[in-house]
Design a protein around this nucleic acid. Structure first.
Length: 943
RNA sequence: GGCGGCGUAGCUCAGCGUGGUUAGAGCGUCAGCCUUAUAAGCUGGAGAACGUUGGUUCAACUCCAACCGCCGCUACCA
């Protein structure tokens, strides 16, 4: 012992009346301050070094735990994580840990989505390359490096969040076996006739020069030109049209008024669509006649600025079918056609139709056998077909076209129109429709749509409305365009017959390629480079011949597959290939994935296995700011995950994820809100600290079994069981918020305001080894252990930190908090719970007595019959529960209600235990009660 | 435009499938107490037109309709 320490002791020599030294006051080195940002990284390291997750996983399997597989929806390996990703990772982690702690084989394989345009764009920018000129193999190698860089970086960030999983063996869409699975699935789909090539008007990004899928567009507000224009009739056309209206031709010019927000599509115009059952009129305004829908006539005539128009005649749209008018600036006719989709809310009721530039227009074009004019190249420049506009960029041409319309007198009005418009998810520019030949998965082939919808109803959806949403999503899903004209991805190994130009995807060829890819090791780089580097003969089956012309000469196509298709086969590449549980127990993602990953997985799985790939789907809301607004970097309310963790600590943010209802609606996040959570955190932390401090001195050997505990300690454990039952039930239905509320309430009402207060006297003033003190400590140990395991899925860091502060002796074989098991509650003792509740109530009444403090009172209690015997059995615990000096009596209540009457305590205040009792029973300790005197006497002569 | 979700105290949420006591909880806030959990703890108080407006009903936060706000999804706004 160091001299200065001895000195300290002599300095704090107790005064004769100060008996603090003889009390068992709380003692722990569990820090009051969390310092989460500083301490959490140590915990992450500790879990890694001890293999906490994998060890528990192995133990659960050895003990026969049922498999539980949360299948990870792969984040895109590009950029740092934001709070939306944080929520995603932590919710998944919580679910994984709930099942892990429940003894299941909760196998979580994280994965990454690593191909695709965003990484390709980043890489090109980084290398200052133009993708048209870059060597594909070089570019793909650089993309791979970049994707791996981001994956590693994101992995570190995920681990920092305290998440568990097989982070040493994640799945990657760029791994050889994964790529091979993609190709094999394409082969299967081609073989079973779901996959085919066709000319369609598809979403196209002119900046990235590729087709896009529905899942790749974002809706944003966009201001478009709003142009009303005349399509004039030639003399012969005018005569015919007027006849259809029953009018004579008096030589007045006639035109059909159309409306468009995309003037650049006018060069591709071949038709005007009318609604068959709507009424159209010929209106005379000044010196001209115009045809327009009756219900929109006034707004169109107003734009003519030629005064009030007069209605000359009316006819249904169907009466005008197949008449024609002249294109406003090209030398051709525009056919009047009918289409049900024409709306009469805005515009003129006469829809400018360009089959090359719209899905519906395309369909109408096919129906009428119209030419599919597509005068726009991949980069958005007009081709020679566009006549005077050849060479211009389409969006720049808008203004020019409007001016030309004005100059030729075809323009009625030019305004601007703000509307929500599809944009490219990657470059954020408006997308267009452009007719090109692409590969599709047909939702309407072999009943795929109906089978997918049926599969939806076999799945458990959380929230329940997810079922309806998914069902609608599948019902509305058009053909899935899966081909992309880029290089960073898995090839669609199709070939084109050099004889007849017919494209085909030969399943044998594809499987041969896949087999070669599987033969490559991860370190050899992109296995699918083989499609670029090896001659076609390497993979082509012998005797491959064109089905159309019988030709045997082919060349390779160089499309890659949509990355939504790649992530769409994770169920196969991960669950099936690794021999994990399939269908997965659960998928858990943000609500945006109904159209994305939930759907892509459903479709590929139903098409090839006829079963949904998941048993349950859980979706959660979008993270928005404090005020409910979407977070954007530009709006300044964006929160990066690593910054938030540095500032608040991962555990506080984890607690936030449980503090709010994440499943329905938006999830708010902001500083004020986190302050709120911080208070709750602090309370829970203090409680854990208090438990640890009051367990001081307890050893495994001195633990009192439940049967031999004081009666009130057994009641406390009954209340604990009720908490366990509620929290584990909440966990099993993934209601983290209910678990959070339950833990908080128990902490506050049962522990802090009641049980802890009740135990103080017993813990502090008993002899250290007294059975009644050990009983209290044993109950507290049980509560501590249970609170730790119940908190662990959410507050992983703090629960582990607290558990580590328990003595090795008490922790025993359960080295980590994740070695513990969630309580299994067979059935609750309702009578005990009722007695506990009544005690709390009576204690609250005593505590609320004005002006007097604990122990300054004696009490007399009357309770109704069911409780009477129980209370008698409590013995001195009843007095203890009320925190009074003595119980003056326990009676049977006559009126059926329990009452407690308090009176000033009879004795004098014992200087040690503060109870008011008879003092001076020991001449050496005149200011102590008899019990304290005995204890102090025993302590005075330490061995 | 359509579909869906959400809208209850300063904050986060319960309650509303079976409409009926003074609409609950935690956090915060204010006041009091304790000083043997002490950079803690206890007790008490204040605090809510249950988004708005109508309707059904003896009675609505709870059922119905419309509307408003926020968010998400979606569309053939040509």
């Amino acid at each position: 012992m160091r001299p200065d320490h001895a000195h300290d002791e002599s300095m704090s020599e107790p005064k004769p009346t100060d008996y603090r030294w003889s009390l068992n006051l709380p003692k722990t080195d569990f820090p009051m301050r969390a310092d989460l940002a500083k301490r959490e990284p140590d915990r992450v390291r500790w879990w890694a070094e001890h293999g906490t997750y994998l060890q528990r996983l192995a133990r659960n399997r050895a003990e026969g735990g049922a498999p539980f597989v949360l299948h990870d929806g792969p984040p895109y390996a590009n950029g740092d994580l934001h709070m939306g990703t944080f929520l995603n990772r932590v919710l998944k982690d919580t679910l994984v840990k709930i099942h892990l702690l429940d003894g299941e084989y909760s196998d979580f394989v994280p994965g990454w989505d690593m191909h695709g345009l965003p990484i390709e764009m980043e890489t090109l920018k980084h290398l200052k390359l133009d993708f048209r000129r870059a060597d594909p193999i070089e570019l793909r190698r650089a993309c791979r490096e970049r994707a791996l860089y981001w994956m590693n970086r994101q992995r570190e960030q995920m681990l920092r969040m305290g998440t568990f999983g097989r982070f040493d063996d994640p799945y990657m869409t760029l791994a050889p076996a994964f790529e091979a699975t993609i190709v094999e699935t394409l082969a299967d789909l081609a073989e079973s006739d779901y996959l085919y090539k066709g000319l369609r008007s598809t979403l196209w990004c002119v900046y990235d020069e590729t087709a896009l899928a529905e899942a790749e567009i974002e809706y944003k507000d966009h201001t478009s030109p709003s142009v009303y224009a005349r399509f004039r009739a030639s003399d012969a056309q005018r005569k015919a049209l007027l006849e259809a209206f029953g009018l004579d031709d008096d030589g007045t010019p006639l035109s059909v008024a159309i409306w468009t927000t995309t003037p650049w599509t006018l060069p591709a115009n071949v038709a005007i669509a009318l609604k068959p059952d709507a009424t159209y009129g010929v209106y005379r305004a000044g010196d001209e006649d115009v045809i327009v829908a009756q219900s929109l006539a006034s707004s169109v005539i107003a734009r003519l600025e030629k005064g009030e128009g007069t209605l000359r005649a009316e006819a249904p749209g169907s009466a005008l079918e197949r008449f024609a008018v002249r294109h406003p600036f090209l030398d051709r006719d525009s056919l009047i056609v009918l289409a049900d989709y024409v709306e009469l809310e805005t515009g003129t009721g006469a829809v400018h139709t360009a089959p090359g530039h719209g899905a519906d227009d395309f369909e109408t074009g096919v129906r009428y056998g119209l030419p599919i004019i597509n005068p726009v190249d991949a980069a958005g420049r007009f081709t020679a077909e566009a006549g005077p506009y050849a060479g211009m960029h389409i969006f720049e041409a808008n203004a020019r076209i409007v001016e030309d319309l004005r100059a030729s007198g075809a323009l009625i009005s030019a305004e601007s129109y703000e509307h929500s418009y599809p944009h490219c998810w990657r470059c954020k520019n408006p997308v267009i429709f452009r007719a090109t030949a692409q590969w599709f998965i047909g939702m309407d082939r072999h009943g795929l749509r109906e089978r997918a919808e049926r599969a939806v109803h076999t799945v458990r959806w959380l929230p329940e409305w997810g079922e309806n949403r998914m069902s609608q999503m599948v019902g509305n899903h058009p053909e899935w365009c899966v081909s992309r004209q880029r290089v960073w991805g898995t090839p669609i190994p199709a070939v084109v017959c050099t004889g007849c130009n017919e494209a085909r995807l030969d399943p044998l060829l594809a499987r041969s390629l896949a087999k070669a890819m599987r033969g490559r090791s991860f370190d050899e780089g992109n296995a699918s480079d083989l499609w670029w580097t090896e001659p076609l003969e390497t993979f082509a089956p012998p005797g491959m011949a064109c089905a159309g012309c019988g030709g045997t000469a082919f060349r390779k196509e160089h499309n890659i597959v949509d990355i939504w298709f790649e992530s769409g086969v994770t169920w196969r590449a991960v669950l099936v290939e690794r021999g994990m549980k399939f269908p997965a127990s659960a998928y858990l993602e943000g609500g945006d994935q109904y159209r994305g990953w939930f759907r892509s997985n459903l479709i590929t799985s139903v098409a090839t296995r006829d079963v949904a790939p998941y048993e349950q789907v859980i979706s959660y809301g979008w993270v928005v700011d404090q005020h409910g607004h979407a977070m954007h970097k530009s709006a300044g309310n964006y929160i990066a995950a690593d910054e938030a963790i540095e500032k608040y600590g991962a555990d506080l943010l984890r607690l936030w994820s449980a503090s709010t209802d994440v499943l329905n609606g938006d999830v708010r996040l902001g500083a004020a809100l986190l302050d709120n959570v911080a208070n709750v955190y602090k309370n829970l932390r203090f409680r854990l600290r208090y438990f640890l401090s009051s367990l001081d001195g307890l050893t495994r050997a001195s633990i009192v079994t439940r049967e031999r505990m004081e009666p009130i300690d057994r009641l406390a454990l009954g209340a604990l069981a009720a908490l366990s039952a509620r929290v584990t039930a909440a966990y099993r239905r993934f209601d983290l918020h209910d678990a959070y509320v339950a833990l908080q309430q128990f902490d506050k009402e049962d522990l802090s305001a009641f049980y802890v207060d009740v135990l103080k006297d017993r813990l502090y003033s008993s002899a250290p080894n007294a059975p009644r003190r050990r009983s209290a400590q044993s109950a507290l140990l049980e509560i501590f252990r249970t609170m730790c395991v119940l908190l662990a899925p959410i507050l992983s860091f703090t629960a582990e930190e607290a558990w580590q502060h328990l003595s090795d002796d008490l922790r025993g074989a359960d080295e980590s908090v994740f070695d513990l098991v969630l309580p299994r509650i067979a059935e609750l003792d309702e009578d005990a719970l009722a007695a506990w509740a009544l005690l709390k109530e009576l204690r609250a009444q005593v505590a609320a007595s004005e002006g007097v403090r604990d122990f300054q009172l004696d009490a007399k209690v009357d309770v109704q019959q069911p409780f009477y015997d129980r209370f008698v059995a409590l013995g001195d615990n009843l007095r203890e529960a009320l925190v009074v000096s003595s119980l003056r009596g326990l009676g049977l209540s006559s009126n059926g209600t329990a009452t407690v009457v308090v009176v000033p305590a009879a004795g004098e205040k014992c200087q040690r235990c503060w109870k008011y009792l008879p003092l001076n029973t020991d001449p050496d300790h005149p200011t102590l009660c008899e019990s304290c005197a005995t204890i102090v006497r025993g302590l005075e002569k330490p061995a």
